[in-house]
Structure formats: structure tokens, C-alpha cells
Design a protein around this nucleic acid. Structure first.
Length: 505
RNA sequence: GACCCGAUAGCUCAAUCGGCAGAGCAACUGACUUUUAAUCAGUGGGUUGUGGGUUCGAGUCCCACUCGGGUCACCA
């Protein structure tokens, strides 16, 4: 009597039981001489390719053609009707239905079929046909196992919804949620389109150091690392800027780089510690030229990647048709804070206005920092449609040229779209003495409590002393641009493996 | 870093006022020769994130912790 057996096995959890079942099938296959993880599979098309190529073929045309195809894919559904079964092969984008008549399979194929589980990779050989409901179907003559899945896949209908698992085990997200895969395909198309656009405009793609002695080119806290052989403290770059501008000195007059930057700061829906930036430098141009270039580039990419210059983002329609409005820092504040012209020039009035609004006060309270703090508090929330915010204060723009008509401000722009800062650009400062002076001012700010003030890079000043041509330069956040293009609220939805805290234990 | 919200079967989700922890898919057994979220009959599967507490009784209330999401701060 089974219930009287004292050594009865303890009950297995559901997951353990499913895994055990799959291991049993794996063992059965091995016993039958089936290789469960073969090295390769000669195939004609994946399911998407079959669907694409034969979409227009009628049942009669397929019957006449009597095409034999070899198609690989992951088994995503299994419908058994006794002697006839249907399986779906999935390639992450489309499925191809298999028709399997168990009586008509050879012995090896029969073994594979009897030990099949959802999630297994399969290679099917058969004749392409349409069922009486019109479904494009491969009538299988031979089956090979390409890889055995030892754990169950997420449920087929709802897919994987748990955001934590989607980020930690992105492969499950990609394997089950087509809309997630589409985001990363769009991201790839975006980067490809950007490279093509820049190449077509005579820009040369280059690579500059990711490990730097002095982390320059931006205001941010760096990650530290160490080179053993040289016993050297190094920093992961926060920006490639100063190296790319050294290339301008070297006569590479149109360069760009698309790669990762690393900033040791908080994580949010718009921030990942490593993120992708496109930076370009363009000799003999200034920030006005760069504005025209970037509005042309982004609107062009929207049309080629998304099919329209009008994008839906967070429930609003964003129109990327150029030209985009230019809004100076002071104009913006005057418009949205309704401060008089006199107050705009008066640090005390700016401080009073910040206090009145209960806004965060900057660590450094000079004119430029106060003006920017007020801008961020009152203007930024309004910047849904593409807007070039221009003419930033010199105190926060140590790498930019000053305006000739008002040296308190620089020839700089930040591009805002959908409330996100998408790009940052300026007419590049190339006067070595002035640059040295700006670095000095940054060091003073650092001493004054701003941990993220720029570092003094003497080697960069040395390069400028050899003459850097006048140039416009720009950085564009690729992740955020992808968020805009794909209407995603979080940067984690456009980065394949966002940084996550490890699970305890 | 602060605050708010969340975590239930492999997956997607229920569970009324604190009163026997459930469904669908998936798994397992069986039926079925054109289904496609196949269908039908049956079976198994839970330390309700972790650790405490209150209570006759906790998925539910309280405290702490872990992880995640969101907002703010910082920043691109």
C-alpha cells in the first residue's frame, strides 16, 4: 500500500517538480541516443522569415511548390489532438505553426517529440502548406532537438509582467514580450541611423579612453579604478569631451563617438550609472550650426526609425518638425516667473525668488548658479515640446565660449524634449589662457563645496596651446532619445541590463 | 539619501470586517486526425519576500529587515 510506505518521498514544490520532469525527459533523450545540445543546425529560414517570404502564397500555390524547409525556433505552444499535434515555433517576433502527425515521424523525431517541453529549441524539417483555416504551417517530416529547456518559461498569454524579473532576467522578457524586443530593435535602428547621418555629414567615428587620469568634460562624480602594473589610480570617464577636442587640435575636424559614460550618482527613471552618449565636435562651426544639425538629425531619425516626426510620448504628441524654438535662460525665467528685467540681473532678487518659491538653493550662490536654479524650478517643467534652452551662465559652463555681447553668458544650448534633457552643446572654448582661468574657477567652486565641479586638466590646456580650431560640440543622450522614440517612462526599459542591487543571500 | 506604494503556486492574478489560501495558463494522467489563448475528464503543486509581535485565530493589523516600483534630491 503506497500510503503505508514509511520512506515516502517528501512532496516537491511545483517548480522543483517541473524541473525534475524536464531532467527526466533529458535523460530519456540521452538514453535514446538523442544529442540534446547539438552544435549547429542548417536551416533555410526562421519563423519571421517564413511568414514574411510566404505571406502572399495561397494554399494551392504552396501545394504545387511542395517546398521543403528547415526552420529552427523555440517551442511556444503545443496543441495535441491525439495522432495530430500542432506546435508553434517562435523566434521572438513571429511564430510558425508545425503540424506533426506522430505516425509519420521517424524514430529519432518521435523520441524528440515525446520528450518535448514548452521552451525547448527545435529544428523542424517539413513541407510548407496552409491548413484549412489558412494558417501557414510546416508539415513536419523530421524533428531535431536544438537545446533542451530545463526550466519553465513565463506564461504565454500575459507574458512576463514582473518588472524586477524583466530587468534581472532580461532574456525572459525578450523571449516572451515582443514589445520589449521592439524597443531594443528601435534603439539599434536609432544608433545605426545616427551613425549613417553623421557619416554622411563627413564625421569620423573614433574611440577615446574610457579610463582616464582626470575625469573631465562634465560635472559629475566618477567611479574609481586601479591599474596594477602602473600602480595608477584611474577614473571611468564621465565624458569623452576633452579627448575628442584634442582630436580637433590634431586636425580631425569632424569627429564623433558613441559609447558609455559612467557617473557615480543616483539611479532614477532618467539615470543609470552607465549610459550611452553620442558626442560630436565640428571644426569651424559654432553652437548655432550645431542646433541646426541636431534638429535636422533627430527629426530625420524620427521619420526613418518611427515613420513620423510626430511622436506620442507620455500621452502627449511631440512634434519634432524643425525648426525648434530657442529660449534663453533669461527669457524663460521672464516668461514663467514673471520677474522684471532688473530682477533678472540681481543675484539678491533671484535668491529671494527662489526662497519665495521654496525651491532648493544651490551650494554656490553666485549669479550663474542662482539663475540656473531658478530656471530649473520654474521653466523646465514646461519644456515638453522640443526647445533649445540657450545662453547659460559662464559659471556653470567652463568649457564654453562667452557671448560677445554679454560675457556673463555663454554660447551654449541644452535641448529639452518631453521634459528630458536630450543634448548639451556649446561653441567650444579654445583660448588656452581663458580655459586655464575657468579651470581655476572650477577648483575654487570645488573648494567651496561643489563636489561635481570640473577637474583641472593641465594636459588639455597644453593641447589648446597648440591651437584648437573654433568648433561647435555636442553630447546627445542615446538612452533618453530611445525613451522618447519608444514612449518609455523609465531608462531601465531601454537599457538591456540596467544596474540592479544584487538579491540578498 | 528621504518619503510613499508593492511582494500570494513556475507565470498572470483573486481572496469581503482578521475566520478553511483560490482561478486561468503551465505541470502530471487520460480522451481526441486541422487546432491556434484548442477542447473535455481527472491529479498534484503554497513556510502568502524574511524575521519578530498583537490575537482564540494573521495573506489581511503592528514593528524591523530584504528586494522592487514611484516621487523628491543629484544629474545627462
Amino acid at each position: 500500500m503506497p500510503e503505508s510506505q514509511p520512506q515516502r518521498e517528501p512532496k516537491m514544490s511545483e517548480l522543483d517538480e517541473q524541473i525534475a520532469n524536464r531532467h527526466k525527459k533529458l535523460a530519456a533523450l540521452k538514453d535514446a541516443g538523442v544529442e540534446p545540445y547539438p552544435h549547429r543546425f542548417d536551416h533555410d529560414l526562421e519563423p519571421s522569415g517564413v511568414q514574411q517570404r510566404f505571406a502572399e502564397q495561397s494554399a494551392e500555390e504552396l501545394e504545387q511548390a511542395a517546398l521543403s524547409l528547415r526552420v529552427p525556433g523555440r517551442v511556444s505552444a503545443l496543441r495535441s489532438h491525439g495522432k495530430t499535434s500542432f506546435a508553434d515555433l517562435w523566434d521572438g517576433r513571429h511564430k510558425l505553426q508545425l503540424l506533426i502527425r506522430t505516425g509519420e515521424l521517424d524514430a529519432a523525431s518521435q523520441q524528440v517529440f515525446e520528450n518535448l517541453d514548452l521552451g525547448d529549441y527545435l529544428g523542424a524539417t517539413g513541407r510548407l502548406m496552409r491548413t484549412r483555416t489558412g494558417e501557414l504551417t510546416l508539415a513536419v517530416t523530421h524533428l531535431v532537438l536544438l537545446a533542451k529547456a530545463l526550466r519553465p518559461m513565463p506564461e504565454k498569454w500575459h507574458g512576463l509582467a514582473d518588472v524586477e524579473i524583466r530587468y534581472r532576467q532580461r532574456y525572459l522578457d525578450l523571449a516572451t514580450n515582443p514589445e520589449s524586443r521592439e524597443v531594443f530593435e528601435a534603439r539599434s535602428a536609432l544608433v545605426r541611423g545616427m551613425r549613417r547621418f553623421l557619416d554622411d555629414h563627413g564625421f569620423l567615428e573614433v574611440e577615446t579612453p574610457m579610463m582616464q587620469l582626470i575625469p573631465g568634460g562634465a560635472a559629475a562624480k566618477p567611479f574609481r579604478t586601479h591599474h596594477n602594473a602602473l600602480d595608477l589610480e584611474l577614473f571611468l570617464r564621465i565624458a569623452p569631451e576633452l579627448y575628442l577636442k584634442r582630436l580637433l587640435v590634431g586636425g580631425m575636424h569632424r569627429v564623433y563617438e558613441i559609447n558609455r559614460n559612467f557617473r557615480n550618482e543616483g539611479i532614477s527613471t532618467q539615470h543609470n550609472p552607465e549610459f550611452t552618449m553620442m558626442e560630436l565636435y565640428w571644426a569651424y562651426a559654432d553652437y548655432q550650426d550645431v542646433m541646426k544639425l541636431v534638429e535636422e538629425m533627430i527629426s530625420h531619425l524620427a521619420v526613418t526609425v518611427r515613420g513620423s516626426a510626430q511622436l506620442s510620448f507620455r500621452g502627449e504628441t511631440i512634434d519634432l518638425t524643425p525648426p525648434w524654438p530657442r529660449l534663453s535662460i533669461r527669457e524663460g525665467i521672464a516668461r514663467y516667473a514673471e520677474l522684471g528685467a532688473a530682477a533678472l540681473d540681481d543675484p539678491q532678487a533671484l535668491l529671494a525668488e527662489l526662497r519665495r518659491r521654496g525651491a532648493e538653493l544651490p551650494a554656490i550662490r553666485d549669479y550663474g548658479h542662482l539663475l540656473m536654479a531658478l530656471f530649473e524650478a520654474v521653466v523646465e517643467p514646461h519644456l515638453t515640446q522640443p526647445t533649445f534652452v540657450i545662453d547659460h551662465p559662464v559659471e556653470i559652463s567652463p568649457l564654453a565660449k562667452q557671448r560677445k555681447d554679454d560675457p556673463r553668458f555663454t554660447e551654449r544650448f541644452e535641448l529639452y524634449i518631453g521634459g528630458m534633457e536630450m543634448a548639451n552643446a556649446f561653441s567650444e572654448l579654445n583660448d588656452p589662457a581663458l580655459q586655464a582661468q575657468r579651470f581655476e574657477e572650477q577648483m575654487a567652486q570645488r573648494a567651496g563645496g561643489d563636489e561635481e565641479a570640473h577637474s583641472y586638466d593641465r594636459d588639455y590646456v597644453l593641447a589648446l596651446e597648440h591651437a584648437m580650431p573654433p568648433a561647435g560640440g555636442m553630447g546627445v543622450g542615446i538612452d533618453r532619445l530611445t525613451m522618447l522614440f519608444c514612449d518609455r517612462a523609465s531608462i531601465r526599459d531601454v537599457i538591456l541590463f540596467p544596474l540592479m542591487r544584487p538579491v540578498a543571500g
